[in-house]
């Protein structure tokens, strides 16, 4: 942990060497998700509700997914950029150091320009939390936190899977975008609006709905069972196969060197 903090401050120092570029990129990040927010606003002001959810309720989805994703991207960027680490031989360096490979990949890159998006998610929360019609109790506040934190961890798991795939293919990686970028962009609405099949997929295979749709039902008192409050924790199971897959990739790398 101490080591991680050290890496954290090193990355901070490095990025602050290029302040102008840093802030421009941050603003760019902000704008990109702002365009999505704007399109969401246009749609909701035209239709008022979608599947019975109001604008402010949809915003809770948007903000929790955006914040979760951006946290994962900011701190787990090493996995996102892992193909590059493999390509330039930096990964060999990680293997000759006496620390766990996962920790080193994690620490290899952090991207603070993602704060632009995190900030936006925070603003949206400030706007939507009081207006969403949710009666906020301690349990519900906890649920909202779980949505963000577990969401972040599941997206992080997806980055690990992405990195693991890069042990096997470089060109074919683009298909993972539908789960990472797609998960973020389509997560602006409750995942249930995409239909039964997609919801099942996002419940049992890549559990994005477990930290978004089901706890939202709990927040809105549509489902009163405490089980729905804790579904985000259930989604963390995804990290296990993700981790195992990455380790499998490392083993393959160590026997083939590529």
């Amino acid at each position: 942990m101490r080591l991680y903090m050290k890496f954290f401050s090193m990355h901070m120092k490095s990025q602050m060497q290029y302040k102008l570029s840093f802030f421009l990129t941050m603003i760019g990040q902000f704008l990109v998700s702002f365009a999505i927010l704007l399109s969401l606003y246009f749609m909701m002001s035209r239709f008022n509700v979608v599947m019975g959810f109001t604008y402010e309720q949809v915003l809770l989805c948007f903000a929790s997914v955006l914040m979760g994703y951006s946290l994962a991207e900011m701190l787990g960027r090493g996995f996102d950029l892992f193909p590059r680490m493999l390509g330039n031989g930096e990964f060999d360096r990680a293997l000759v150091r006496p620390r766990s490979v996962i920790t080193q990949v994690l620490a290899s890159k952090m991207d603070f320009t993602r704060l632009g998006r995190i900030l936006q998610a925070a603003f949206v929360f400030i706007y939507a939390v009081p207006k969403s019609g949710v009666i906020w109790t301690r349990d519900k506040i906890l649920t909202l936190f779980l949505m963000v934190i577990c969401g972040s961890l599941v997206f992080f798991g997806l980055f690990i899977v992405y990195a693991a795939f890069s042990f096997f293919t470089v060109e074919g990686l683009e298909f993972m975008n539908i789960l990472t970028d797609g998960g973020r962009e389509f997560g602006r609405y409750p995942y249930a609006i995409y239909g039964e099949g997609i919801l099942k997929f996002l419940t049992y295979f890549v559990p994005l709905a477990l930290f978004q749709y089901y706890p939202l039902l709990y927040l809105l008192d549509i489902e009163k069972s405490k089980l729905y409050m804790f579904t985000p924790l259930l989604s963390l199971i995804f990290l296990l196969p993700a981790y195992a897959f990455f380790q499998y990739g490392v083993r393959k790398y160590k026997s083939t060197g590529s």
Binding site: D92, L95, V96, K254, S255, G257
Partner: peptide, 8 residues
């Protein structure tokens, strides 16, 4: 690489 533990 073998001596460094990178390759098996």
């Amino acid at each position: 690489k073998i001596m460094c533990g990178i390759l098996t």
